[in-house]
Structures are given as structure tokens and as C-alpha cells.
Computed example of a mutant assay.
Amino acid sequence: MSSVPAAGDVLDPDVEVLPLPDVAARLDQPITRVRQALRDRHLIALRRDGVLAVPAAFLADAEVVKGLQGTITVLHDAGFSPEETLRWLFTADDSLPGRPIDALRDNRGREVKRRAQALGF
């Protein structure tokens, strides 16, 4: 079994992150499914203080935020590293307005994906 990929912690320290067991509990899934989602690039994990964690903003209720997986895929296909993807998702964009992750959480994924696709050209 391959190891779980982890990005460097490029987020502000005030961005809440959840250790993988907490992510599994919130999603009501075994931790093996969370690890597989990370390997499949459906989620991005980072190491904070030596602990593998996922940004809490990636989850809404008991699900992964709608549109996040597709956005991660589009950015990956555009050549973004996991660190660059995290920075992009958590950096304010005046044209949205706000951060792309917040727009995804507000069900404005189409606009976020459109901007992500434009980065690939």
C-alpha cells in the first residue's frame, strides 16, 4: 500500500485543520477510505505539527464540500502542486469575492471551477 501524500503546511496558522481520525468520524467512514481519498486526490492533507490533517473547510456536515474534488483535479491537471492548490483555495480573489474554498462552500462551484480551468491556459 502506498503512503498517504501530504502537502507542506502553507496555510495560515488560524486555518482549522482536522486530524485524519476526525475527518473519518465526520464523514462516518473508516480511516482507510479517507487515506484512499487522499491518494486519489479527492482531498489534500498537510502536516501540521507532525500530524497529518485536512482543512476543516473541506468538509460540510458529513460530506466533502461539493465541487472540491473536481477543482482539485482541474488544478492538478493544470500543473499545480498540492501546496499551490491549497494556497489558491485559501487565498482571497476579489472577483469571486472571497476565497475559492468559501465560494465552493456557498455552492458557487461553477465559478470556482471556471477560474481554475482558466489557470491551465
Results as ranks from 00 to 15, higher is better:
residue 66 K to D: 15
residue 82 P to W: 07
residue 49 D to V: 02
residue 32 T to G: 13
residue 8 G to A: 13
residue 86 L to M: 13
residue 3 S to P: 02
residue 40 D to G: 05
residue 36 Q to Y: 04
residue 113 K to D: 03
residue 53 A to R: 00
residue 50 G to K: 00
residue 116 A to V: 04
residue 57 A to L: 13
residue 102 D to C: 07
residue 96 L to M: 15
residue 98 G to M: 03
residue 31 I to F: 01
residue 55 P to K: 09
residue 39 R to K: 14
residue 115 R to Q: 13
residue 108 R to K: 12
residue 34 V to G: 09
residue 119 L to C: 09
residue 78 A to Q: 03
residue 43 L to T: 09
residue 90 F to I: 08
residue 105 R to C: 12
residue 18 L to T: 05
residue 10 V to R: 06
residue 54 V to G: 00
residue 42 H to Y: 07
residue 78 A to I: 02
residue 85 T to I: 15
residue 9 D to T: 00
residue 103 A to R: 15
residue 44 I to T: 09
residue 113 K to L: 07
residue 34 V to S: 12
residue 19 P to R: 07
residue 92 A to W: 08
residue 68 L to S: 10
residue 77 D to L: 15
residue 66 K to F: 14
residue 39 R to Q: 11
residue 109 G to K: 06
residue 68 L to W: 10
residue 25 A to I: 01
residue 47 R to W: 00
residue 46 L to W: 09
residue 91 T to Y: 10
residue 13 P to Y: 03
residue 109 G to V: 04
residue 29 Q to D: 08
residue 93 D to P: 01
residue 95 S to Y: 04
residue 14 D to I: 06
residue 12 D to C: 05
residue 45 A to F: 07
residue 93 D to C: 01
residue 107 N to W: 10
residue 29 Q to H: 10
residue 30 P to V: 13
residue 79 G to Y: 08
residue 28 D to G: 09
residue 90 F to Y: 08
residue 110 R to G: 11
residue 54 V to N: 00
residue 18 L to Q: 04
residue 107 N to A: 14
residue 101 I to A: 09
residue 18 L to G: 03
residue 72 I to Y: 10
residue 74 V to N: 13
residue 1 M to V: 06
residue 50 G to Q: 00
residue 87 R to H: 07
residue 101 I to C: 11
